[in-house]
Design a protein around this nucleic acid. Structure first.
Length: 257
DNA sequence: ATGGTCGTTGCACGA
């Protein structure tokens, strides 16, 4: 199975690039974030034409997550299924695709360490763990892929000195990822690549992409049964080039059957 | 040191 995650930064603006990319790369499963579409505005037919079933959890204007699959798509769940109140923002959608329980996640940005949105981000990560604990076992075949808005360690930012006191790199954010790892998920890209500067996001401004100023914040977190079958993973930097790119590049994972 | 670019919507704000 070829699985990918891509923060498309508006599916309305990005649909031509996404269609072109899917026809070229042919992922079996694509997790998308930041569709920025209302629930019913998702262009399901555009994906049907390419051979994919889709599920979308949207709220219009901001956020919005989706999964496209050409290996089946069943048992969709929108948001957290942890017994708590509904998340006011559309940041999580889950479905079973080709025998894998797949979640597409868009973790809150956090904005600044003293911002309420940072508190929401940490609480959101805690709920994601509770959602996993309640609905899956570590021995299950699980993939949680998306824009985590967290750089797991200093290899994942272009200049750690510039990020002191900022979001995405704080110990509390990194600890929330470690909590997922303690439950049983593996950052499978990091398992297969130990180099620094292998980024998945670059600011649109100041030529950051061409200057190599980015972060690795788009992660494919997988359970052990998936990690042991993953032989190959890359960031498709070509998708960050050219006309009207997203500010994120897709991360691809090939999993043996 | 500062600001810069996109996306949304509507002329500001989030990322």
């Amino acid at each position: 199975m070829r699985l990918a995650t891509w923060n498309v930064n508006s599916l309305r603006a990005r649909l031509p690039r996404v269609q072109e990319w899917m026809a070229d790369v042919r992922p079996d499963v694509l997790c998308m974030q930041e569709t920025k579409l209302a629930e019913d505005a998702f262009p399901h037919m555009a994906f049907t034409e390419l051979g994919y079933e889709t599920v979308h959890h949207g709220q219009g204007q901001w956020n919005g997550v989706a999964i496209a699959s050409r290996v089946g798509l069943t048992d969709e769940v929108r948001g957290f299924a942890d017994g708590g109140e509904a998340d006011p923002e559309a940041r999580l959608v889950t479905a079973t695709c080709g025998g894998v329980r797949v979640s597409s996640v868009y973790v809150p940005n956090g904005r600044a360490l003293d911002n309420d949105h940072y508190t929401y981000k940490l609480a959101w990560m805690k709920r994601l763990l509770a959602h996993l604990e309640r609905n899956q076992k570590p021995s299950d075949t699980v993939v949680v892929a998306g824009d985590f808005n967290i750089a797991p360690d200093d290899r994942d930012v272009y200049d750690p000195k510039k990020f002191v006191g900022k979001t995405h790199v704080s110990q509390a954010e990194r600890d929330s990822l470690v909590a997922l790892e303690n439950w049983g998920l593996v950052d499978v890209f990091r398992r297969l690549h130990d180099q620094d500067r292998l980024f998945s996001w670059w600011d649109y401004r100041s030529g950051d992409f061409h200057q190599g100023r980015g972060m690795r914040i788009d992660l494919v977190m997988v359970s052990a049964s998936v990690a042991d079958r993953t032989r190959w993973t890359i960031v498709d930097r070509n998708a960050r080039k050219g006309q009207q790119p997203s500010d994120h590049a897709p991360v691809l994972v090939d999993i043996d059957d």
